[in-house]
């Protein structure tokens, strides 16, 4: 295998008509890698303030997900139970053992049964907290960690994601900046989720819920003073 490695690298260098990249160029390339320089970011990815929140909400719906907007964490439990009722789903959720979700006063909806931890194949509804929401395309960014298993994003047929307005960013580049600031290195999995699972593989007819969730519901806590009044 090391022979294959050497041969592939040599074949590249021969084809490009040079030897190993020289020291000066290497330095340039490393600077490029570490510089996180942005390419053109479309106007849609540069929105801020109120427009960022409104664009995000609009694009979430464009992606065929649904969205409920609440003014504070206190309203999240009711928003979740309302949604489950609307969809004729049982008042039972599997929730990520995410400390950020503990700030939500779940005690206000005593009828909602909450299980914490890894999802079981029988779980119908999963609930997780997003690391960020991206206004450009209504995309949720979720990262794996001890408290945030990625499996929860895919196994249950209904996925509810809680995101705060203060966690919204304009474009993907902002999301990377936010991630680099929050973590020393890449987590195992970063999921960008834009709408519910779908397939068009049978005669190009769109069907939701191919393998991942058939329903994606976003609960947006619109409490960011910086974003201006809702």
């Amino acid at each position: 295998m090391t022979e294959a490695r050497a041969q592939i690298l040599t074949s590249i260098r021969l084809a490009l008509g040079r030897g190993v990249v020289d020291a000066a160029t290497q330095q340039e390339l490393r600077a490029r890698l570490n510089g996180h320089r942005r390419n053109l970011v479309p106007a849609r990815g540069q929105v801020t303030g109120r427009q960022k929140v409104e664009d995000f909400a609009r694009m979430v719906e464009f992606s065929l997900a649904s969205i409920a907007r609440v003014r504070s964490v206190d309203e999240v439990p009711a928003a979740v139970t309302d949604y489950l009722k609307q969809q004729n789903l049982p008042a039972e959720i599997r929730m990520a053992p995410d400390k950020r979700l503990d700030a939500i006063p779940w005690g206000r909806t005593p009828l909602l049964k909450i299980a914490r931890g890894m999802p079981d194949p029988k779980d119908e509804v999963g609930l997780s907290g997003a690391f960020a929401g991206i206004a450009e395309t209504g995309t949720l960014m979720l990262v794996s960690g001890p408290d945030t298993p990625s499996t929860l994003n895919f196994l249950p047929e209904t996925h509810v994601v809680v995101v705060r307005a203060s966690e919204l960013v304009g474009g993907y580049e902002d999301a990377w900046t936010k991630l680099r600031a929050a973590m020393p290195s890449m987590p195992r999995t970063v999921n960008f989720i834009t709408g519910p699972s779908r397939s068009g593989d049978i005669e190009q007819t769109l069907q939701l819920g191919a393998h991942g969730p058939r329903r994606l519901h976003v609960v947006l806590i619109d409490d960011d003073p910086q974003a201006g009044p809702a």
Binding site: P42, F62, S144, G145, T189
Partner: peptide, 30 residues
């Protein structure tokens, strides 16, 4: 930004997943 629009005309594909290494020691899945 070009891939999904060119492929299916979606704004973004539903799942874009960035994987880096195996599960971390404290992770509960992966």
């Amino acid at each position: 930004r070009l891939l999904a629009r060119s492929a299916t005309g979606q704004e973004f594909s539903v799942y874009t997943t960035v994987s880096t290494g195996p599960k971390r020691p404290q992770d509960i899945d992966g």
